[in-house]
Amino acid sequence: MSTEQWYYCLVHHDVEPAEGCKAIERLGPYPTREEAAQALRLAQERNEEWDNDPRFNDDEDEPDKDDGGSAFDALKP
């Protein structure tokens, strides 16, 4: 099993090994070159999942469907 990691460079729009561009310019690491090549698609899919997750819905017009309270409730006096 290879321990090599791959990254997708946002500057060059290409897959590169660990010895590539600065970390701020890359997505990853990914376990395979093929998975790194799909980095933009994977990021888009994850963003859509998070945008549609009711646990993170910021729409204030709808009542809160989760009666479990807020993480900030423990900080209230």
Rank of each mutant, 00 (worst) to 15 (best):
S2A: 07
T3P: 00
T3W: 00
E4A: 15
E4I: 02
Q5E: 15
Q5N: 06
W6L: 01
W6K: 03
W6S: 02
Y8D: 04
Y8N: 08
L10R: 12
V11F: 08
V11G: 06
V11K: 14
H12A: 14
H12T: 14
H13Q: 14
H13C: 09
H13I: 04
H13L: 14
D14I: 09
E16Q: 15
E16W: 04
P17M: 01
P17W: 01
P17I: 03
P17A: 02
A18N: 10
A18H: 07
E19I: 03
E19R: 11
G20P: 04
G20Q: 02
K22E: 13
A23K: 14
A23Y: 10
I24S: 15
E25R: 09
R26A: 12
R26F: 09
L27N: 08
L27V: 01
G28Q: 03
G28A: 09
G28C: 06
P29F: 01
P29N: 06
Y30L: 08
P31D: 11
P31F: 00
T32N: 07
R33W: 07
R33M: 08
R33K: 14
E34A: 14
E34N: 06
A36W: 00
A37T: 02
A37H: 03
Q38K: 15
Q38Y: 00
Q38T: 08
A39H: 06
A39C: 09
A39D: 03
A39S: 10
L40R: 13
R41G: 13
R41M: 05
R41K: 15
R41N: 13
L42H: 11
A43E: 14
A43D: 11
Q44A: 15
E45C: 03
E45K: 06
R46A: 12
N47W: 04
E48Y: 02
E49P: 00
W50E: 11
W50H: 06
D51K: 11
D51R: 12
D51S: 11
N52G: 09
N52L: 07
D53K: 02
D53F: 01
D53I: 00
P54S: 04
P54I: 02
R55H: 09
F56D: 06
F56L: 10
N57C: 13
N57L: 03
N57H: 04
N57V: 02
N57E: 10
N57T: 08
D58N: 10
D58A: 12
D59Y: 07
D59A: 06
D59G: 04
E60V: 10
E60N: 03
E60S: 14
D61H: 09
D61G: 09
D61Q: 11
E62K: 13
P63Y: 04
P63D: 08
D64G: 07
K65E: 14
D66Q: 08
D66R: 10
D66Y: 15
D66L: 08
